[in-house]
Computed example of a mutant assay.
Amino acid sequence: MRLAGIMMSSLVLGLAACGGNGPDEGETEPEATAPTIATDMESPVEDPFCAFTAENTDTSGEGGSYVFVTSMGDAVYHGYAKLDGEVTRLTEVEAGFGAGMETRRYVTEDDSVELEVILLDPRDGQAESEHSGSVRVIYPVEGDAVKFYGECDYDETGE
Rank of each mutant, 00 (worst) to 15 (best):
E142C: 08
A17Q: 12
V45N: 12
D74V: 14
R89N: 12
T108R: 04
T59K: 10
E46L: 09
S43E: 14
V107I: 05
A38E: 14
V87T: 15
S60W: 10
D121R: 13
G85W: 11
D121F: 15
D84Q: 09
I6N: 00
E116F: 03
R104G: 01
G150N: 02
M72E: 13
H131G: 01
E130S: 05
M7G: 00
G125V: 09
G100E: 15
A127W: 07
L90N: 02
G143P: 13
E128K: 03
G19E: 08
G133V: 08
D110I: 07
S71R: 12
L11K: 02
G61I: 00
P48R: 11
S112D: 05
T28L: 08
T33V: 07
L120D: 05
T57D: 01
R123G: 10
L120M: 00
Q126A: 11
E92H: 03
Q126D: 11
F97N: 13
K147Q: 02
Y77I: 08
M7V: 07
H131C: 02
T53M: 00
I6E: 06
V135T: 00
T28K: 11
D110P: 03
A38Y: 10
A4C: 07
L115M: 01
S43N: 11
A38I: 06
G14C: 09
E116I: 10
A145F: 13
V107N: 00
A95R: 07
G150R: 01
R104Q: 02
D110N: 09
L90H: 01
P30C: 02
I6F: 09
R105A: 00
E92K: 05
A81G: 09
E31V: 13
T53S: 00
A127K: 12
G22N: 15
A54F: 05
T103D: 04
Y106F: 07
E156L: 03
G85I: 10
R105P: 02
E29H: 06
G73K: 12
E109P: 02
R105G: 04
V45Y: 10
T59H: 02
E116D: 07
E46K: 14
V76A: 15
S134I: 01
T59E: 11
E94R: 09
V87R: 09
I37K: 05
L119K: 06
D121G: 13
S65A: 11
A81Y: 03
T59A: 09
V137D: 06
I37C: 09
G125L: 10
V137S: 12
G133I: 10
A75H: 14
A17H: 04
A127C: 06
T39M: 10
G143C: 14
P23I: 04
E27I: 06
F148K: 03
M101G: 04
A54D: 01
L3F: 14
G133M: 13
E25D: 14
V137L: 07
V117E: 01
E62L: 15
V137K: 04
G150E: 00
M101E: 15
V113T: 11
V141Y: 15
E142F: 15
F68N: 06
E46G: 09
D111C: 04
G26H: 07
M41Y: 13
S60V: 08
T108I: 06
M101P: 07
Y106N: 01
A32E: 06
I37A: 15
V76Q: 08
A145M: 11
V76G: 05
T59P: 03
E29N: 11
D121N: 14
M72T: 15
Q126R: 13
E42A: 15
P122I: 05
E25N: 10
E142V: 14
E159N: 09
C18Y: 04
T108E: 08
